[in-house]
Amino acid sequence: MGVLTDYFRAADAADVVRAMRTEDGDPLVNGEHAVFEGVEAKGVDAPIVLGALIAAIRQVPWSADLVAETMVWPTTPMPGPDGPAAEDDPWATGPWVSRLDPAVRDTLADALDAALPDTVARWARTEELYGASAEDLLPVAQSLVTLARRARDDDQQLYCWVCL
């Protein structure tokens, strides 16, 4: 089972929550009726794999704090430490949407186009990418950079939609 991951831009969390309710949690960026401009990036989870891209762009070692996220969906409180969420609880089943720290958006937006192939070559060595080639990853990175630039230009934030 793979993890589905989409990145998109939106004005604010309220817009995202409205869209999640209207679309009943379905993906917000694919298909004819995309709600937001975004990038389908299956398996590119925010903290690890996107974090590795951020590390490659910044030319720093990966660390868990490179991609800070704020959860915006589900809107119900996360279950406490007394036990796991019920099987039908959205915290157990997803989808989940988080707002990425503006520093992530800005790092992507500031990526140098000329340096991106070398950056992606470093990113492709990330263990979690399971041997994906830099050639296959370059269009994903370019799309994320373009999305981040548009988000910053329009004073929007980047969000990550994830589902199992």
Rank of each mutant, 00 (worst) to 15 (best):
A115E: 15
V17F: 05
L66F: 06
Q59W: 00
S133W: 03
A121F: 06
A10L: 08
Q156V: 07
R122M: 10
A148H: 00
G131A: 15
E135C: 00
L158T: 07
M1I: 08
V162H: 04
W123H: 10
R150V: 10
D88N: 15
Y130K: 13
R105V: 06
W62M: 10
D26H: 00
S133V: 00
G51K: 08
A124P: 05
Q157P: 01
V35N: 06
G38S: 14
A92D: 08
T5N: 04
R125T: 12
R152F: 02
T70W: 02
A121V: 13
V29Y: 05
Q59A: 15
T93D: 02
L100S: 00
R9V: 04
A132L: 02
F36S: 01
D118A: 12
D82Y: 13
C160T: 01
E40M: 09
W161T: 03
P84G: 12
T107S: 08
D6Y: 10
C160Q: 07
W73T: 02
V97I: 06
A86P: 03
A134D: 08
E87C: 11
A111Q: 05
P139V: 11
A86K: 12
M71K: 13
G38I: 13
A121S: 15
P77D: 13
R105W: 09
R9D: 05
A11W: 05
